[in-house]
């Protein structure tokens, strides 16, 4: 039960990829943070909400064979670092693709999927994963 408030608070960013942009240096962060780690004090009050487009490309990836019990049903699966069009990198699963078809630079887009469940009676968690875009 302990994680319910944390998951709930993070729903907007996990459902809609809401990050922040530092108006001082232009860097984009996801998940959102209160202060820019580059500009520090200069960024106070300048961190603006920014909804990511959901589009990006595979920056690097790995095939996960020994999955966490939550992902038992999905293994083997591709875990990737996705570089978003806005520049920020996000670690997530790549779905709707054969593992051998994944390549660096592959264009992907965010979709909503079930991320997990807290046992048989607990809350269900939803958020983004990435799937290939037709090129």
């Amino acid at each position: 039960m302990g994680s319910i408030p944390r998951f709930w608070r993070e729903n907007p960013s996990r459902y809609n990829l809401v990050g922040v942009k530092c108006d001082n240096c232009g860097r984009v962060f996801f998940p959102p943070r209160d202060i820019c780690p580059v500009c520090h004090r200069e960024s106070i009050g300048k961190m603006k909400r920014l909804e990511l487009s959901g589009k990006g490309s595979v920056y690097s990836y790995t095939l996960v064979q020994d999955a966490h019990p939550q992902f038992e049903m999905l293994k083997p699966y591709i875990l990737a670092m996705v570089e978003m069009d806005e520049g920020v990198k996000i670690t997530s699963q790549i779905i709707d693709v054969k593992p051998e078809d994944v390549h660096i630079g592959m264009k992907v887009e965010a979709v909503m999927r079930k991320l997990g469940a807290e046992g048989n009676s607990g809350i269900l968690h939803y958020g983004y994963k990435f799937r290939p875009v037709k090129e």
């Binding site: 779905i95 979709v111 909503m112 079930k114 991320l115």
Partner: peptide, 16 residues
């Protein structure tokens, strides 16, 4: 549906 798809994810994708 895949194990990570259900009526909620289908509804969200259709609505988007």
């Amino acid at each position: 549906p895949m194990p990570d798809e259900d009526t909620i994810t289908i509804s969200v994708q259709a609505a988007r």
